Simulated scan of single mutants.
Amino acid sequence: MAGKKVLIVYAHQEPQSFNGSLKNVAVEELTRQGCTVTVSDLYAMNFEPRATRKDITGAVSNPTLFSYATEVYEACKRGSLARDILDEQKKVQEADLVIFQFPLYWFSVPAILKGWMDRVLCQGFAFDLPGFYDSGFLKDKLALLSVTTGGTAEMFSKTGVSGDFRYFLWPLQHGILHFCGFKVLSAQISFAPEIASEEERKGMVTSWAQRLKTIWKEEPINCTPPWYFGQ
């Protein structure tokens, strides 16, 4: 939809990877719709994943016993977070939809993306206490995980060796995105592209592009424990 703004947070080392293809087709399709698309290519940016004292500019409130959460919260209120955090928060704040494109690492996100979440989605910006889940500060935005796996769809089934893929979505979609207020769209899971045929990989890319054509009409999932564990 013309006028919509999309942020793609992209975490893969190789531009010519399958993840790179999924990112590229998303940029192409959403731009074709008239959306403004911004990509945070974390590896290309050499994004700092570590949460440290350097995330606060100026003095900290308690230099003798450093509490990252406390100091970042205070720095957020003062506007004295590190420049790279502020830049990413501005992108999130402007976005109507945030897409996270990444390969599944150990049932989770790559370290560089986890670091982005740790540092960017801080208290005071994405949530507060109270002010989380349905009251999270990003409640007017959509979020979507586009994930590639090493295992097959069969492995990530209820009877598969890895269990239902919804299980690994729980901490990411519910514990991070929903906690910050995002309305979460169903994840796009591309199963085992490395062992798929060229035709199958092309089909996965096409499926993603087709879905994006109507992405703005989708309803968010019911992000509650029964959606993940009660089916």
Rank of each mutant, 00 (worst) to 15 (best):
2 A>M: 15
3 G>C: 12
5 K>Y: 00
8 I>C: 04
12 H>T: 06
15 P>N: 15
16 Q>H: 14
22 L>D: 02
24 N>I: 02
25 V>L: 02
26 A>T: 09
29 E>R: 09
31 T>K: 09
32 R>L: 14
35 C>L: 07
37 V>L: 13
38 T>S: 12
39 V>T: 15
39 V>K: 10
43 Y>W: 02
46 N>I: 02
46 N>E: 13
47 F>Y: 12
48 E>C: 03
50 R>G: 01
52 T>V: 12
57 T>A: 11
60 V>H: 02
63 P>Y: 05
63 P>A: 11
64 T>H: 13
68 Y>P: 05
72 V>I: 14
74 E>T: 08
76 C>E: 03
77 K>D: 00
80 S>M: 15
84 D>P: 00
85 I>G: 09
85 I>R: 09
88 E>F: 01
89 Q>Y: 11
91 K>R: 13
91 K>S: 05
93 Q>N: 14
95 A>L: 00
99 I>N: 11
102 F>Y: 15
102 F>V: 12
102 F>E: 07
106 W>V: 14
109 V>E: 01
112 I>L: 08
112 I>W: 00
115 G>H: 09
115 G>T: 12
117 M>F: 00
119 R>W: 04
121 L>E: 04
122 C>R: 09
126 A>Y: 01
129 L>S: 12
131 G>N: 08
132 F>Q: 10
132 F>E: 14
136 G>R: 10
143 A>F: 07
145 L>A: 11
146 S>P: 05
147 V>P: 02
151 G>Y: 03
154 E>W: 00
154 E>R: 14
156 F>C: 10
161 V>C: 15
164 D>F: 00
165 F>Y: 11
165 F>D: 07
166 R>P: 08
167 Y>W: 04
171 P>G: 03
176 I>D: 02
177 L>Q: 02
179 F>S: 03
181 G>C: 07
182 F>N: 11
185 L>I: 15
187 A>E: 02
187 A>C: 04
190 S>K: 11
191 F>W: 04
194 E>D: 04
195 I>G: 01
196 A>W: 00
197 S>V: 12
197 S>A: 08
199 E>M: 08
201 R>V: 13
203 G>I: 13
204 M>K: 14
205 V>S: 07
206 T>F: 05
215 I>C: 07
222 N>A: 14
224 T>M: 11
224 T>L: 12
226 P>W: 06
228 Y>G: 05
229 F>R: 04
229 F>I: 05
230 G>Y: 02
